[in-house]
């Protein structure tokens, strides 16, 4: 099949070799009668092979809807209304996830792209043992016997550093702690060796120590298996730990994508700059005389996805905004070859 060669002629928009997933102007709207919530309205982002792209943004910025769109798991009335989701299969072929048939999509879920969620406590079926659930997953995608599947399941538990895997295989989710369950979820997600793992706030529900362990584990697994990760979070501390690149989302759009160091060193979007200024820092926030300084919140609030402004969505809160910003939505501009920003005035930053 022509699809199996990386630069197939029948696909004029074939991805560059090192790109696993590229969302181009993705639009996911929730149409409720006459009202339309534009939760994702023009997301463009790129996940590179073997790298982690962190998607950050506040609640309602569209980061979870973006990941659900990629998995095509949107619930009614959400729908992808525009844009493309180009994905490179493991055999090298490129598909557009936005228009793929449900049947082919199902074969991609779990095998090509797997996803883990925020709630490890409730993401496992309480009625089946952990081993059963991992084996179900493996046998859905690969024609192997129960016995072989069990050996694989055991190996997966070892891989995610669960002690006494033989015993754990026969335990039910309620017999495990939150951290253990998130490890099981990771084992489940990686059981069929996916090329891309989407992690939707996988550490948010865990305490800080366990969070660090899970992040370590994900980093190690990425090194060993070579998978790409799309890591959705609102925690910039976690981003600094795990990401190679960062995409910052605001009101349904990616407003900035850059390598992690560039982004932290020199944000080229006023929203990112505002976010970074919000992070409390024990040293920095204490003045010379020992009194505490106030936090630096961004004034105003996120516009409703039901009524987005005509121009730049951030303009009403932006210290740099001028008339042009409020009428014309900014394109994704190159601040440097690897640094994209959706700000007309990024040169001032």
């Amino acid at each position: 099949m022509a699809m199996s060669t990386p630069n197939a002629d029948n696909h004029p928009d074939a991805l560059a070799d090192d790109i696993v997933l590229r969302a181009e102007d993705l639009r996911t709207h929730f149409i409720m009668g006459t009202r339309t919530a534009k939760s994702v309205d023009g997301v463009t982002l790129t996940v590179r092979r073997g790298q982690t792209l962190a998607v950050v943004g506040e609640s309602g910025s569209g980061k979870s809807v973006t990941s659900l769109s990629i998995m095509r798991l949107l619930s009614h009335p959400g729908r992808i209304v525009g844009g493309r989701l180009l994905y490179r299969m493991r055999d090298g072929g490129v598909v557009d996830l936005a228009t793929l048939s449900d049947k082919r999509m199902r074969a991609i879920r779990g095998k090509e792209i797997a996803m883990i969620f925020q709630e490890p406590m409730t993401s496992l079926n309480p009625l089946y043992t952990v081993g059963d659930q991992i084996m179900e997953m493996i046998r859905l995608h690969e024609p192997i016997s129960r016995h072989e599947a069990r050996i694989r399941a055991r190996r997966m538990l070892e891989l995610v550093e669960i002690p006494a895997p033989d015993k754990r295989l026969d335990q039910y989710p309620h017999e495990m702690s939150g951290g253990m369950r998130q490890r099981v979820m990771i084992a489940l997600a990686l059981a069929c060796n996916p090329a891309l793992l989407i992690a939707d706030e996988p550490t948010t529900a865990l305490d800080v120590t366990i969070q660090a362990q899970i992040l370590d584990l994900m980093r190690r697994l990425q090194r060993e298996i070579g998978m790409s990760i799309l890591f959705v979070t609102h925690n910039l501390g976690v981003v600094a730990e795990i990401a190679h690149e960062v995409a910052v989302m605001y009101a349904g759009r990616v407003v900035e994508q850059a390598p992690v160091h560039d982004l932290f060193a020199r944000p080229r979007h006023p929203y990112t700059k505002g976010l970074l200024a919000c992070i409390p820092d024990a040293k920095r926030d204490r003045a010379e005389d020992g009194t505490r300084k106030m936090l630096n919140p961004i004034p105003g609030s996120v516009p409703s996805v039901l009524a987005l402004p005509a121009g730049c969505a951030y303009a009403p809160r932006c210290p740099l905004a001028e008339a042009h910003c409020e009428s014309v939505p900014p394109d994704l501009l190159n601040a440097s070859p690897e640094h994209l920003t959706r700000c007309w005035r990024h040169e001032l930053l």
Partner: peptide
């Protein structure tokens, strides 16, 4: 609507 059903979907369970 329970998370584990969504998780099962995300892992390709028909």
């Amino acid at each position: 609507e329970l998370p584990y059903v969504e998780a099962a979907r995300a892992l390709g369970v028909p």
